[in-house]
Design a protein around this nucleic acid. Structure first.
Length: 771
DNA sequence: CAGTGAGCGAGCTTCCGCTTGACTT
């Protein structure tokens, strides 16, 4: 028999707390929620005032039975789940499912894991807040209704296994709408004029001063006119202004800002950041990684102060109190910080070390002084013109937090460092070294990265720290969105330059529009989005979550009844569900791209039965149209006529090799050559399926054959279906198109046919393949 | 849900938020 049983959400937390409390306390964890709505039907009795049907999911049965056992042996049960809506619900579900006796059950909450905080919590115990629980039930039931009533409409009208939801559908909408902005974006150009001046310094040393004109010219003619004028102009410094400036640190990390910075500074995906952070948390190196709070505990603040004084000195300390800006933040935890700030570096693999270092720097910098700068702005007048050149310099007066950390920005333009200016005075005359007007193009709005999408969702108050990473993975799994690299295109631009009194005009080229790790909507994502926006405008509204959150808050405050709120929502929502089901058609996008020059027939891009296609000709008459599947990443809305026609150029027949045809085409894994029903991948970046010739294809076939020779470890004369091969994960046995693992310790080169057959027989039958 | 075509029928998919392992390829 133990006196006290404390139940927290996470096992890592349980371990830490158990150390603080005496042997009178046993600490167990619930591993998050232990009950959820049944998945049979809706799990909600609509006609019984939306009564939820809760069950313990299969993977939680063991946790629950363990807890039940512990409860039996405890005098008092302390429910210590997080202090937010979900945490309160977890406590309630625990007390219901474990049939806890009210007399012996206490609800406690704490925000930091220290002995004092926990003892304080124990002294200030309370009961379960049913209003808060009801707000959670409203949230849960609403999400189930939206998800489980809309998704089946998509299965029937669009494609099986698709999904819709309050969070994921808005995430997709953001990406789709951004893509359309980009498709419709019309780039314009203007001329940016830059100059380099020589600064006289009594003949000692030559200084150069870079400046930019305060105006851009709309066309080549005006730019040329200006540069012509510069030939004989006199350049005079008309003004020198010095101004102090300061920079302040960013608050310590939340889940969302950690994901953003790890993406920008370390190149981690959102999921990768969370996996690495989880390991650091479990090793006791950082505080909890799923949080929306920017607060640091008092103990942490004291520790940070000590570290800053020790490492950088007293002048660098500035303890700050950050306030959260994100909508709907629940702040049940601290911000993400090192568990022990005195630990400057950790053991572990490279990713763990780098993420830890990032977290350490951000937490420490957040409590450091502002950086102080001096900015200098120099104006240079051009005789006979009203435009002026501006040169800017920046000198650091006091580094402050920049000694440790500078937040990166999503803006792709380069960040400016310190620029030192030579000594300058008003009235100085500066001879030019060069002046050039370069044609610059306006850029379309940036596509989302995983991390910038998380940032946007957080701003809208949509989704929670624990769901950002899974949401991003869901919308990709459904095929709504793809994360991709895209090569840029060459673009020509004009440049007019003046040097030593001579004007030169040139046309240069630059690569533009290259993308890496960006989210692109796929055609199915756009189709589903348009369908949902048309029929479920309320749920797809960017403010829907914010407005239901307000209602959840009222429920939590005891000012509203949760089932009333759900009923109001459901009445109009369900009507739309019924109406949508009754309508037959889903609008399929279709665009006329132009006319095929060789046949004179119209060319379309459209959504067909098995996905997006290009089509030449019409279905009418006795002739049938020709179809070609769009390639991955090609968009119905942006496909050009030329791209469509190119799709019909494959497969190409290259000729005959060893009495068999060689053809090239492009498939699921990229471009390939096909010969004697065997596939040979073309090399990315080297071979082009539209231009490759027979000789090169034969070369690829020979190369592959050579490689395959090394692939075979053993074959058996008695049974051609068995072979031992060398694969990506080492040697394995291949038999009738199935692969089998070779047991540890066995030497693959000396296995006999009988050995192989035994291994095959001993391998348990595989479970159904996951998609 | 292209056009084609072996036909028929049954069963399955899905939400958001809490939380960890257990599994392969």
């Amino acid at each position: 028999m133990i006196n006290n049983l404390v139940i927290v959400e996470s096992p890592a937390k349980a371990k830490t707390i158990e150390k603080f409390l005496g042997k009178d306390f046993k600490v167990k964890s619930s591993m998050g929620h232990i009950r959820d709505l049944s998945k049979e039907d809706l799990g909600i009795d609509i006609n019984n005032n939306f009564k939820p049907r809760y069950i313990v999911p299969a993977d939680k049965k063991k946790t629950v039975s363990d807890l039940r056992e512990s409860v039996k042996n405890a005098k008092t049960v302390w429910l210590a789940s997080d202090e937010d809506r979900e945490g309160e619900a977890i406590a309630w579900h625990l007390s219901e499912e474990l049939k806890l006796d009210k007399e012996n059950t206490r609800r406690i909450v704490f925000h930091e894991i220290t002995k004092e905080a926990i003892l304080h919590a124990i002294e200030n115990h309370r009961g379960i807040d049913q209003h808060l629980v009801d707000a959670q039930q409203a949230r849960r039931v609403l999400d189930r209704l939206v998800g489980f009533e809309i998704s089946p409409i998509l299965w029937r009208k669009v494609k099986p296994s698709l999904s819709a939801g309050r969070v994921q559908s808005v995430a997709v909408r953001l990406i789709v709408e951004r893509e359309r902005e980009i498709i419709n974006f019309k780039s314009t150009s203007s001329y940016r004029v830059t100059s380099v001046f020589e600064v006289p310094d009594n003949g000692k040393k030559v200084h150069f001063l870079k400046a930019e004109l305060d105006e851009r010219f709309q066309d080549r003619k005006k730019a040329l006119e200006f540069v012509e004028k510069c030939k004989d102009a006199i350049f005079t410094i008309s003004d020198v202004v010095k101004k102090p400036a300061k920079k302040s640190p960013s608050p310590p990390f939340t889940t969302s800002t950690l994901q953003q910075e790890a993406s920008r500074k370390l190149g981690f995906s959102v999921a990768q950041t969370m996996t690495v952070a989880q390991r650091l948390y479990e090793a006791g190196l950082i505080t909890y990684m799923r949080t929306d709070s920017v607060n640091l505990s008092n103990t942490a603040l004291t520790a940070v102060e000590q570290i800053i004084i020790k490492e950088f000195g007293k002048d660098f300390v500035n303890i700050r109190n950050y306030k959260t800006k994100s909508k709907g933040a629940q702040e049940a935890h601290e911000a993400i910080r090192p568990a022990y700030l005195s630990k400057l570096a950790i053991e572990g693999n490279n990713t763990e070390k780098r993420l830890y270092e990032l977290i350490w720097k951000r937490a420490v910098a957040s409590q450091m002084s502002d950086a102080r700068l001096e900015k200098t702005t120099v104006s240079i007048a051009v005789s006979g013109r009203k435009e002026i050149f501006i040169a800017e310099g920046e000198v650091m007066k006091f580094e402050g937090f920049l000694k440790v950390y500078l937040e990166s920005s999503d803006d792709e333009s380069e960040e400016k460092g310190e620029v030192l200016l030579p000594p300058l005075e008003t009235g100085m005359k500066l001879p030019y070294v060069s002046i050039s007007a370069t044609e610059k193009f306006t850029h379309y709005p940036p596509r989302f990265t995983e991390a910038s999408l998380v940032k946007k969702l957080e701003e809208l108050g949509i989704g929670r720290p624990s769901t950002y990473a899974p949401t991003i993975s869901t919308i990709q799994q459904r095929g709504y969105v793809i994360k991709e690299e895209r090569p840029g295109k060459e673009r020509r631009y004009n440049i007019i330059s003046l040097e030593k009194g001579a004007i030169k005009e040139a046309v240069n080229t630059e690569i533009t529009g290259a993308e890496k790790g960006k989210l692109f909507p796929d055609n199915i994502g756009m189709l589903v989005n348009d369908f949902l926006v048309e029929h479920f405008a309320e749920v797809l509204d960017f403010n829907f979550t914010a407005s239901v959150e307000k209602e959840f808050d009222e429920i939590a405050d005891g000012k509203a009844n949760w089932t009333d709120m759900i009923k109001r929502f459901y009445l109009s929502f369900h009507q739309k569900v019924e109406a949508t089901l009754a309508q037959k058609e889903v609008v399929k996008p279709e665009r006329l791209l132009g006319t095929d020059p060789s046949t004179g027939k119209p060319v379309y891009s459209r959504m067909a039965r098995f996905g997006a296609v290009a089509q030449i000709g019409e279905t009418t008459g006795d002739e049938k149209p020709r179809y070609a599947q769009l390639r991955k990443g090609q968009n119905i809305e942006s496909l050009t006529l030329q791209e469509a026609l190119d799709l019909f150029k494959l497969p190409r027949n290259l000729g005959i090799f060893e009495d068999k045809e060689v053809a090239v085409s492009t498939g699921r894994f990229g471009p390939y050559a096909l010969h004697d029903s065997k596939f040979y991948s073309l090399l990315k970046g080297i071979d082009d399926p539209y231009t490759i010739e027979l000789d090169r294809a034969i070369e690829l076939i020979h190369e592959k054959r050579e490689k395959d020779k090394n692939k075979i470890i053993a074959v058996f004369s008695e049974d051609k279906e068995v072979s031992i091969l060398n694969g990506r994960w080492g040697p394995y046995i291949s038999y009738k198109k199935e692969n089998y693992k070779i047991p540890r310790g066995a030497d693959p080169t000396s296995l006999t046919h009988a050995d192989c057959m035994k291994i095959i027989a001993d391998t348990p039958v595989k479970k159904k393949k996951k998609k």
